[in-house]
Design a protein around this nucleic acid. Structure first.
Length: 427
RNA sequence: GGUGAGGUGGCUGAGUCCGGUCGAAAGCGCACGACUCGAAAUCGUGUGAACGCUCUGCGUUCCGUGGGUUCGAAUCCCACCCUCACCGCCA
C-alpha cells in the first residue's frame, strides 16, 4: 500500500511514477472520492463530538440529581443524521482503501524504465558458460533416461505440471535444500524458520497477492485458506500487526517450504519439464530492516543467494528488472538467472526484492524509533529466493551432465549425498 | 467432537456482576532528568495505537470481529472467530 500522505501531498508525482511501470492511476475517481471523504469526515466527527459532549453532560446532570430531559431531547435529534453520516463515511473509506490497495508500489529511481523483461538491465555475470563435446540433453531427457524423473506418473496422480522423482535424484533435490539452509543459517546469519503452508487471506493481502492475484492461488473450500505461493507470505506476515524495537532490526529469516501456484494465464509457457510447476520447493530469505538500510540489505540478500550459485559452480547473471517487469509490491528487484545448456539461455532462479514500506503498511508492521516515542514508522521488508530448488535441480542436472547420460554431483553437495560422485541409471 | 475458562496498551494484568471524566489501575519495558568519574541500583517525570482538521493545538475512532439496545457501552444482548485447559479420537 502506498503512503496515503504521499497520495494527498504529491499525487502528480505518484501518477507519473506509476505510469513508468505501466499502471494508470484512476486520478479522477480518487480525487472525487477523496474530496467527499474529507468533507464528510469533518462533518461526521463534528456530530460525534456534539453527541459525546452532550452525553457527558447528561451523565453529570444525573449524578447531581438534576433534570436532563432537555439535553436528552437535543441529543436524540442528532441520532439519525449521525448514523447516516457514519454509514456513508465508512462506505467512502472502504471505496478509497479498495482503490488504493489495488495500486502497485512505486519503482525506485534506480530501476530502469521499460515495458517488459526485454528492458531489464544487465548488472553482472558470473561463471563460464560450459561447452560440451556431445549433444546436450535437457533435464527431462536426462531424468527420464536415468529412470529417476516421471512426469506421466505425476499426471496420473494429479495432473500436469507436477513431477515424481525417485532414488538419488530425489535425494539430490533434498540435498540442495539442506545445503542452502546450512549456508544461510551458518554463514549469512539467517534464523531457520518453519511456518504453515496454508495461510489466511489477511496474510496474502499483507504481502500483496490479494486482492489482485486471487486467481493465481489455490484455496481450500471449507476454510478459505490459501496454499502459500511462496514462504514470503507466512514469514513476512510473522510481523503483521507488530511494533518492533529499532534495536531488533534487522531481522533475517530463512525458510524452506513448498510453493503452490495455479499458473493461471501461463498455459502455453514452459509446459515441458520442471521449470514451471504447480508445486515446487523453495528456500526463501526474508529481511525486516530499518528504512535507511533497505537498499544495502537488498545488495546483501542478493549476494547471499548468489553465494549458493557460486558454490554450486553454476553460471548465472544478475539483472535489474525494468519498471514494466517489476512485481506488484516491489520497489526494486534483482533477478538471478542461471544458465541452462539445453535452452542456451539464462533462466530465472531467484528474485530478490525490496518492497520498502509497501508490504509493511499493508500489514501494519512498524518499528519504534528510539528517542522518538511519539511515532512509529513502517519497517522495510525484503525477500529473495535462495534459491528456487526445483530450478536449481534442473540447472545442476543440465550443467553437470556427462556424455554417458550420468550427472556428476557438485562438490559441495557430496557430503549430503553420502559421498556419491555421480547419479547413474537406476536399474 | 464434548466440557470449561478466556481474548483489554510494546508486554503482564485490573476493570465487566451494579453502563456515565475509563483510552483504561498497577507492574514491567522504554524515554528524559537527578544522583555518579562512569555504570548498576535508586528516586522523579513522561510514555497506547490509528486517523482527521482551520496541526506548537483541537477532535474522532479503537478494549477479539460484526451487529443490536441506549442520550451514552470495555461493561448489557445476539452471532461469529480465535486462544488455553481437561476429556474423547488421532499422525
Amino acid at each position: 500500500m502506498l503512503d496515503t500522505q504521499l497520495l494527498r501531498k504529491d499525487i502528480d508525482t505518484v501518477v507519473e511514477r506509476l505510469r513508468a511501470r505501466g499502471f494508470e492511476f484512476e486520478l479522477d475517481r480518487y480525487q472525487d472520492v477523496e474530496v467527499r471523504r474529507k468533507a464528510l469526515q469533518v462533518a461526521t466527527q463534528a456530530l460525534q463530538n456534539e453527541r459525546n459532549t452532550s452525553s457527558r453532560a447528561i451523565g453529570q446532570a444525573k449524578s447531581r440529581g438534576e433534570d436532563a430531559s432537555a439535553l436528552l431531547k437535543k441529543v436524540g435529534e442528532l441520532g439519525d443524521e449521525l448514523k447516516r453520516n457514519e454509514q456513508e463515511l465508512s462506505a467512502l473509506q472502504e471505496e478509497l482503501s479498495d482503490l488504493v490497495s489495488g495500486v502497485p508500489n512505486l519503482p525506485h529511481p534506480s530501476v530502469p524504465v521499460g515495458n517488459n523483461e526485454n528492458d531489464n538491465e544487465f548488472i553482472r555475470a558470473w561463471g563460464e558458460i560450459p561447452e560440451y563435446d556431445f549433444p546436450v540433453r535437457d533435464h527431462v531427457e536426462i531424468g527420464q533416461n536415468l529412470g529417476a524423473m516421471d512426469f506421466d506418473a505425476a499426471a496420473k496422480i494429479t495432473g500436469s505440471r507436477f513431477v515424481v522423482m525417485r532414488g538419488p535424484l530425489a535425494k539430490l533435490h533434498r540435498a540442495l535444500i539442506q545445503y542452502m539452509l546450512d549456508v544461510h543459517t551458518t554463514e549469512h546469519a539467517y534464523l531457520e524458520t518453519y511456518v504453515p503452508y496454508l495461510v489466511n487471506s489477511d496474510s496474502l493481502f499483507g504481502t500483496g497477492q490479494l486482492p489482485k492475484f486471487a486467481e493465481d492461488q489455490f484455496v481450500t473450500r471449507e476454510e478459505n485458506w490459501y496454499l502459500i505461493p511462496t514462504a514470503e507470505v507466512p514469514v513476512t506476515n510473522l510481523f503483521r500487526d507488530q511494533i518492533l524495537d529499532a534495536d531488533d532490526l534487522p531481522i533475517k529469516h530463512v525458510a524452506h517450504t513448498p510453493c503452490f501456484r495455479r499458473e493461471a494465464g501461463s498455459y502455453g509457457k514452459d509446459t515441458r519439464g520442471m521449470i514451471r510447476q504447480h508445486q515446487f520447493e523453495k528456500v526463501e530469505l526474508v529481511q525486516i530492516v530499518h528504512p535507511d538500510d533497505s537498499y544495502a540489505a537488498l545488495e546483501e540478500l542478493t549476494g547471499n543467494a548468489e553465494t549458493i550459485l557460486q558454490r554450486l559452480e553454476l553460471p548465472y547473471r544478475v539483472v535489474s528488472l525494468s519498471t514494466g517487469d517489476l512485481g506488484f509490491s516491489s520497489a526494486k528487484t534483482y533477478d538471478l538467472e542461471v544458465w541452462l545448456p539445453s535452452q542456451q539461455r539464462y533462466r530465472e532462479i531467484s528474485s530478490c526484492s525490496n518492497f520498502e514500506g509497501f508490504q509493511a503498511r499493508r500489514m501494519r508492521a512498524r518499528f519504534r524509533v528510539a528517542g522518538d516515542r511519539k511515532n512509529t514508522a513502517p519497517v522495510h521488508t525484503l525477500n529473495g529466493s535462495g534459491l528456487a530448488v526445483g530450478r536449481t535441480l534442473v540447472a545442476v542436472m543440465e550443467n553437470y551432465q556427462n556424455a554417458d547420460g550420468n550427472i556428476s554431483i557438485p562438490e559441495v553437495l557430496r557430503p549430503y549425498m553420502g559421498g556419491l560422485e555421480a547419479i547413474e541409471t537406476l536399474v
